[in-house]
Each structure stands twice: as C-alpha cells, then as structure tokens.
C-alpha cells in the first residue's frame, strides 16, 4: 500500500513536471495537484487488483505499437487502392479473459489492431467483432491480442486470477 502510494505520487509529480513543461515556479500547486491526484486514484482504482510487471508491459507496448502500425497501413492501403477489397463481416468470439480491466483493454486495443473493430461485448464474454476483410485470420488476431493481455495482467485465460 505504502509502495503504491509512493509510486503513484511520483508518477503524478512527473506528470505535473511534464504538463508545466519543466518550469518550477509553481511547484507548490504541483505538489497539491499530485497529492490530490494520488488520493483520487487510490479511491477510483485501489491497488492490488492487478499486478503488472515492467517486462510484460514493455512486451505489450511493443506488440501494440507494431500491430497498430500494421493496422493503420492496411486500412490506409485499402482506402487508397482503386478497389478497396472490403469483405466485411461480423464474427462472434468468446473471450477467455476475466471481466474488468483485461476485457476493457482488449476491447479498446482491438479497434487499433489490423482489420478488427469491437461492436458488442456482453457480460458473459461474447464479443462481436466487425472485420474489414473476413478472409483474413480475424479470430487468430484476437486470440494473439488476448494472449498478450493475459500475460500483461498475469492471469490465466479461462479462469479468474
């Protein structure tokens, strides 16, 4: 708990430094803002629910950057081609991730992955995915993203942590 408070306070102080563009003339206000933000974050997102390691986070960020690049390139080429070659379809995929933050992250990241768009996520973990080109391996892309998110949150797919 103490570690979480210190860590979050440090992150918010850093954030203030960035927002103030490195100026130090209002540091009193900055300290107050960082403390208020830490309190709010402890209230809204109590520590200890999910443990995210540094290495899994870096791996996920690399995976995410690479795939959003692929996704952007793919859709840009489709838009500029003479015949875009769209074969859209909605597919249903059952998620094995636990509810809460992991599913939310998957849903939001999916929008930026190649060819996929989340349309409806029901409480039982059934996800409707709109695919730009249904002849591409859409389900496999979702599964790969799911595996990365499971590793990021340190949860086994198919069960609660």
């Amino acid at each position: 708990m103490i570690a979480a408070i210190l860590f979050r306070g440090l992150v918010f102080a850093l954030l203030w430094w960035v927002l103030a563009e490195g100026r130090a003339d209002a540091w009193g206000l900055g300290v107050a803002a960082a403390m208020a933000a830490t309190l709010a974050s402890l209230w809204l997102l109590p520590p200890g629910r999910w443990r995210i390691g540094t290495l899994p986070l870096l791996r996920f960020l690399l995976f995410f950057l690479w795939n959003s690049l692929r996704g952007g390139l793919q859709v840009a080429l489709m838009a500029l081609r003479r015949w875009p070659g769209l074969r859209p379809a909605i597919q249903e995929i059952s998620l094995a991730l636990p509810p809460g933050a992991p599913r939310l992250l998957l849903l939001n990241a999916l929008t930026l992955m190649p060819g996929t768009l989340g349309v409806r996520l029901s409480d039982d973990g059934k996800l409707q995915v709109h695919a730009l080109d249904a002849s591409l391996p859409v389900a496999a892309e979702v599964r790969t993203l799911e595996a990365h998110i499971a590793r990021l949150f340190g949860v086994a797919r198919g069960g609660m942590p």
């Binding site: 690049l69 952007g72 489709m78 838009a79 859209p88 930026l112 768009l117």
Partner: peptide, 13 residues
Amino acid sequence: YTRLHALAKADNL
C-alpha cells in the same frame, strides 16, 4: 463500420 476502421486506425497512426 468500415468508416470507423479507417478513422480510428489511420488517423491514430
């Protein structure tokens, strides 16, 4: 739906 794909992915990149 297809327009959302284009906006979200390409514009964010």
